[in-house]
Every structure is written in C-alpha cells, then in structure tokens.
Amino acid sequence: MPADTGKVGTGADPKDPPLIFSGSVDTYWKYDFSGHSNIPTSFASDQNSVSIGMVDLGLKKKVGKAAFVGELSFGPRSDQSIPTSGYHIQNLYVSYDVTDKFNLTAGYMSTFIGYEVISPTGNFNYSTSYLFTNGPFQNAGFKATYAFSDKVSLMAGIFNNYWNTYTSFITHGNTTTSGDVSTFGAQLMVVPAKGWTAYLNLATGSFSGTELDLTTAYQITDAFKLGLNAADFSAPNNGGGFSGIALYPQLAVSKVVTFGVRGEYFTYKNGGGNVTGITVSSNIKAGAITLIPEIRFDSKSSAFPFAFADSNLAPTNSASQFLIAAVYAF
C-alpha cells in the first residue's frame, strides 16, 4: 500500500532521528503442479528449486527538513525489477519539507501506482498480481506533496518519459538519444473513515501511456482487512493496454497467523485475452521471519498471450502452483 505523505518520519521527537538502516532477505521454493513453470507474473519464477529472492538494504537520514533515502538490492528478484543491470537501486531520492504540510521530493522512486510492491516485506502474497507485473515499478522524477489535513493530501509531479528507467530516452530506429521528463503523475489520498485509506493515481505521458489506478485498503476490524486495486492502462498510439481488478481480504486468526486471498481478474485490451487468478496465502510470523505458504490457481482465455502447458506439455488454460517463502526483515 502506498502512503505518499511525503514525510520522512513522524512523531513528536524533537531531535533528528538517527541514521536508519533496514532491509530484508527472502528465499522460496515453488512447485507448479504441471511440473514446469506456467504463471507469468513477476518474481518467484524458478520451478522445484530452493531459490533466492533478493537482499534489500536501505538507508535513510533526516536532518532538519532535509532527508534522503537510498535503497539497494541484489539477487534475482532485484534483477527482474530494475531497468539496468549493475545499478541495483530501488530508491534513491532526496526530499525537503518546505512546511509541515508541503514536501518536495526528487530522484528515483518506487512507483506511486498500484497495491503490490517489489519488496516482499511490503506484500501479503509472495507471488505477484498481473496488475503489478504489467504496471510501473519505478518512476524517476520530481514531485510535490501537499497535505490539506491528515485525511486528504495531493501529490503532483513530472517524471521521466518512460517508466522503470534511470534516465529518460527516445529511440529512433537503432539510435537512442536522451528523452524528456514528460510523464505527469498525480495521487489523491483520502481517508474516508478511520482505518480506511484510498489512493486515486494517474500517470500519463505521450511515451509512457496513461494509467488510472485506484488502490485502497480498509482495516474493518482488528482482525479483518480488505484491500482493492483497480487499474486501466492505455498504451500510446492506440497500442492496446490492460485493465483489471484485484481484491485482497485478509483475516488475522492470532497474533502469529494471518490468512489472505487475492482474487484477480485481468484483461488485455484489443482482444488480448484475460486471466483470473485466485491466490490463498498465509503469513506466519516467527520473530523477524515471516513464512508464507501459498497456493495459486490461474485460469485464462485462449487469447491470453502467455501459454500454459499441462504435465504432458499440451496447451491448457489453467495452471496451479504451491510455494513456500521465508522473508526476514530487519
């Protein structure tokens, strides 16, 4: 869930907070019941292998009104989530609180769009949704956030012409030149009720296309939380796009165990087919470790561009998998 308050730290402590160091590591084992990988969403792609996700290392510091965040990552999950091999940067930005309510931020940041995130500590399910996989991961740019109150804030910014790039670029045939900062982004955050937060997001540009996204979560009781993500993306030059919706009900049955479901419907535009995914996960806390056993069933239409195959390698429209992941956060 995004929380784009534009604030680095909160609270009543008058002193500057110390240099904050945090991070995570994750590992998993996945088995697709066909005997080979089918489901094409991001990360956790290895079949019947004890595999690694990534090590994530974050630093942040705030002195007075100025702050920075630097977050590095290494590993297969990192490689699949960043644009340039060798950079290993998930977040690198500086921010300044002009007033208590007005913040300016510039750099390379995780996208403000969508429900799920790259870091496994930020997601309930270990596998990811089609909406996440097809949406932006990061946006480099400059944004301003104004908090009208603790219940309403507005972010607006300009970002590089393409998503998921450290530098802007334009390709002409085989030639790549510098691009521009032409993607406009905005996020309206509202808190309609206690425990309920909603984000209406827009990213639009002639190179990057236009995505409209609603991300919301409501902690209805101490134990029950309901999340929702809905998005529509139109690629530039009538190049298609996608739309979809995902629901995330979660129920805490003890202070250690929480169960959750992700139900998703996703469709590509221009007759590109659709897919429905049901993912049932549990988060089992053991100190700093979270164990995530998860089972997932996906069913697609024939026009869906990613092929599923059964155990005989014959085409099929359904796939299912089990995985168990361990995520250590510090």
């Binding site: 995004p2 929380a3 995130v117 870091s119 309920w196 101490d222």
Partner: peptide
C-alpha cells in the same frame, strides 16, 4: 509501523 514502497516507516492505518 511498516516499511512502505519508498523505504519509509509509516503507520499501519487502522491498527
């Protein structure tokens, strides 16, 4: 608090 996508620690809303 939880760590959000920007590497910040922010309150879990509603808890």
């Amino acid at each position: 608090y939880y760590k959000d996508r920007y590497g910040m620690f922010v309150p879990e809303n509603g808890i």
